[in-house]
Design a protein around this nucleic acid. Structure first.
Length: 209
DNA sequence: GCATTAATGATAA
DNA sequence: TTATCATTAATGC
């Protein structure tokens, strides 16, 4: 393999027509609708065509913890397709969603017939693990500024351009709180502190990082 | 008007 | 210092 070929291995979505040719179906979900539940047996590969999905679960007091928020073109639940375990998390549409899904046996069949997609999936999971570790590090800190910057860096990593403080955070403060394990008020206050320290900008209540 | 989101203050742990 | 609770303001439907 040439060195230039390495670059072609990227974490991009799988081709929709290819998925369809292996029996994938398009499903739409209303806002707030569950896509799968914690404890379910994973039987589908999911990829978002349009909309936003969150992966979450709830602690003993019923408080929500969001693990991830995914957008257009991103897949989810795929890491659970290669082992015989139930979902440790739930997935829920947070906007009206169009999702393409492929059953587990068909998905495995696709990977077998098209090894290049298998490499792609590996690349995706690799990248996801990379950021999971970074998130874990940041979440282990008890300093809220570190938790927030960690999350913001993570969100920004999906963005290509890196003009300082130009990345708009499309999350409510409540969602940020649920992603960091902090309380809304703490998020609000810490964000204001960070604005004073010039690590981010607030314009019309919108956060730019 | 009602629901959601953001902001702020008081107080407890 | 952050969490918790209460209150208020702003925004959008």
């Amino acid at each position: 393999m040439k060195a230039s070929d390495m670059k072609t291995i990227s974490c991009t979505k799988l081709d929709e027509d290819l998925l369809k040719s292996f029996g994938a179906e398009i499903k739409t979900y209303r806002e707030g609708e569950k896509i799968f539940n914690q404890g379910d047996i994973p039987i589908y590969y999911f990829q978002i065509i349009e909309g936003k999905v969150k992966e979450n679960n709830h602690d003993t007091q019923g408080r929500e913890f969001i693990h991830n928020i995914l957008g257009n073109g991103q897949s989810f639940g795929d890491s659970m397709l290669f082992i015989d375990k139930r979902y440790p998390i739930s997935a829920e549409a947070i906007t009206e969603c169009t999702v393409i899904r492929l059953s587990k046996p068909n998905f495995l069949n696709l990977l077998e017939k098209h090894p290049e997609t298998s490499v792609q999936i590996n690349s995706c999971m690799s990248q996801r693990m990379h950021y999971q570790f970074i998130m874990l590090q940041n979440l282990a800190s008890n300093d809220p500024i570190i938790r927030l910057t960690g999350l913001l860096e993570y969100l920004k990593s999906f963005h290509t351009d890196d003009i300082p403080q130009s990345f708009p955070v499309e999350l409510t403060r409540q969602q940020i709180a649920n992603l960091t394990g902090l309380r809304v008020e703490t998020v609000i206050r810490t964000i204001k502190k960070m604005e004073k320290e010039n690590t981010l900008k607030i314009d019309n209540r919108k956060i730019f990082f």
